[in-house]
Design a protein around this nucleic acid. Sequence first.
DNA 1: CTGAAAGCGCTTACAG
DNA 2: CTGAAAGCGCTTACAG
Lengths: 348, 348
Amino acid sequence: MKNRRVTMQDVAERANVSKTAVSLAFNNSNRLSEATVKNILEAATELGYSQDPAARMLRTRRTDSLGLLLPQQLDKVLENPYYTQFLQGIGQTCQREGFTLLLAPPLRGSMLKTIPYAAVDGFIVSGLEHDRGEVNALRQRGIPFVLVDSELHDDVPSVEIDDSEGIEALLTHLLDLGHRRIAIVAIETGTEGGYTHWRGPVLRRMQGAISALASHGLTPESAGITVLEVPCTRAGGASAFNKLWVQSECPTAIVAFSDIIALGILDAAREADVSVPGEVSVTGFDDLAEASWSSPSLTTIRQPIEAKGRLAAEYLVEAIAGSDSTRDHHQRLHTTLLVRNSTGPSPG
Amino acid sequence: MKNRRVTMQDVAERANVSKTAVSLAFNNSNRLSEATVKNILEAATELGYSQDPAARMLRTRRTDSLGLLLPQQLDKVLENPYYTQFLQGIGQTCQREGFTLLLAPPLRGSMLKTIPYAAVDGFIVSGLEHDRGEVNALRQRGIPFVLVDSELHDDVPSVEIDDSEGIEALLTHLLDLGHRRIAIVAIETGTEGGYTHWRGPVLRRMQGAISALASHGLTPESAGITVLEVPCTRAGGASAFNKLWVQSECPTAIVAFSDIIALGILDAAREADVSVPGEVSVTGFDDLAEASWSSPSLTTIRQPIEAKGRLAAEYLVEAIAGSDSTRDHHQRLHTTLLVRNSTGPSPG
DNA sequence: CTGAAAGCGCTTACAG
DNA sequence: CTGAAAGCGCTTACAG
């Protein structure tokens, strides 16, 4: 009863032609006479034939699909509206170039395992803060890839933003408002050994902070300056606030490394009846739509999320098409400080 | 210079074993002696070998990937936060079951073209309001699929919500508030011939509206009742409002078939200095996060979006695993009316 | 514990 | 305009 798949061979026999003709009928029908094509297509329909994508991929060495390699589980990733925008950017390029998009989260906890299995022509790698062999695995795989918001490698095309510029602007803004007790809430990357061991965008943001502090004679070790790491979620932000607010010396400003964290901080502050920016100023990073709707609206750094996705996909498509120049693409996009209502003068 | 791909054969030769052993080393290493595995893996690393997903798929007849068949371009689809939630639900199941997720929008404008090309073990079909041969193409493809928010087919598993129940509750709420001049803003499906020719969820929502109207002696043709269709976007909602507000008899209530449309209506009303709900009540459908943040907050129907995605993926995974009972799965989930601040008594 | 051999279903020069 | 043949790179009974 387990009937064999209908293959090209079956269609060819039914239509009294060769497999070549069947293949041509589906892929290059103008190379065949109209009658032949019609004949073949009819036979195919009657038999319920459908081309096999795997076989075609094996033969053509093409999948017409881009892979988005993600550092976290799919549902966690999508919790952050950041990724929706990023996906839209990638989606635009995919659409235009005729690629589908494979979302490839870690398999059994490991990105290393998903890299060799995904049937794609190339990868966009997002948020690889700390390369633990992934880049090597990607190289071994032998297909092009583009790093976005990741630790950089000279010979791999990359798209990123000027992280340090952004945080520097934010901290300068706060320092100018008189704040000297400042908490920096970074994104957890799992890197051990404190911020001096960080690597990717989070390190670069930290460097921006350090440079702003330095211009006021401060360092992350100065009294009043706190650095902590939380997961990049709303809950992470809330927990950060709660940790900070039991300290003997509460900060007068909290710099979150992402909007979603900042929004969580706002939640927790409201919960604790702490006035923002009256008692504490809060800043974010990204400029998600939510940042302007929150109350108070969030002072933050705008970054071109969608453009990042679009560009990364464009580079990847170029590299797939065989352009050698792609490896020279290292795009660093600029950011803008948006001052809204969550920041104000230091109290007292 | 264009060096041939490194294949299993090369690794086998280098390690002085058979291709079988190489395959085993990567997939079933416990069936080989430790020494052999080590030897093979070393040879593979030295040569820069990587398994070929296409070849493996062809052989095993498995891709370990689910396809999400989308009715619109990727970037358009992702504009609606609805899909982010839906993707999260699917993502949970994918993660648990070890599948990646292929986003498969129409290729060169046609879903029919993407169906035969996607390398997936099954499809989730979302929002296929009007089947124009897609279901047949899916059948021809010979792999499982489940329909979500789509026109129903008895022998295909489906997951949907009780659309008519939701809109009925909404209209009853408005009628009870005294509204008799009501505009119904439906989602454009491209079906010709007026609402009697609609098919999927939009038809079911219309039926809910009709049934609520009937209990007050009204029909969609009654004076004061307007029906129009717009694209499911914020801009679509705004255009609906602007069309309605130039009519001689403005409606006192607008029922949008989705939150994103309702939010667009709110935008346009604010723009036109029309008070909601003072001059006109507005309702949505979905209960996106945005619906509670908007001002005024939106009266709407909550539906379990994430659960829908999760369930659909679960059914699909079951069907892929070969369960015959799957085709009996027709899940219809319930909705809840949420009365917030965008609705009030009919003016005058 | 390891190997020889068949075959998954397609496309593509090449020849006519 | 059409066909015979090779081959893409892998896995899996089967045999030893």
